[in-house]
């Protein structure tokens, strides 16, 4: 697989995540956008780990970082989902545009 394809997909995943966070109204979709962005970082780590030690071998550092980052991402989304549940109790909606009571 050549470099352009992988870097292209890293960029595509990253922009998909940013798009999700910026445009989507549903709070759960916003959290999914964060997960997608995190996966672009994971993909980058896996790819660079495979480059480092030549053909056939993969740097274990990159792999272990990716495993930890998946766990951490899970924790963040778990906290986020609990906030979504609480927000639904207060606002009776999943629409993030209704969460506009705090002015700036």
């Amino acid at each position: 697989m050549n470099e352009a394809v992988v870097l292209g997909s890293i960029f595509a995943l990253f922009s998909t995540g940013v798009y999700c966070i910026a445009v989507k109204r549903n709070m759960i979709r916003i959290l999914l956008g964060i997960e997608i962005m995190l996966n672009s970082g994971n993909l980058a780590f896996i790819y660079f780990a495979s480059l480092k030690s030549g053909r056939g071998f993969i740097d274990p550092l990159g792999q272990s970082i990716v495993i930890m980052s998946i766990i951490i991402g899970g924790c963040v989304v778990a906290v986020g989902l609990s906030l979504v549940v609480n927000a639904y109790r207060h606002f009776k909606t999943m629409d993030v545009r209704k969460l506009r009571r705090l002015k700036w």
């Binding site: 962005m37 980052s69 986020g80 609480n86 969460l99």
Partner: peptide, 21 residues
């Protein structure tokens, strides 16, 4: 607090993923 917390979580998690990248 819930609204502020959600806003904070989204912004800050975005920041953390950018640091990760």
């Amino acid at each position: 607090p819930i609204e502020a917390g959600f806003k904070y979580l989204v912004m800050s998690a975005l920041g953390a993923t950018i640091i990760f990248l």
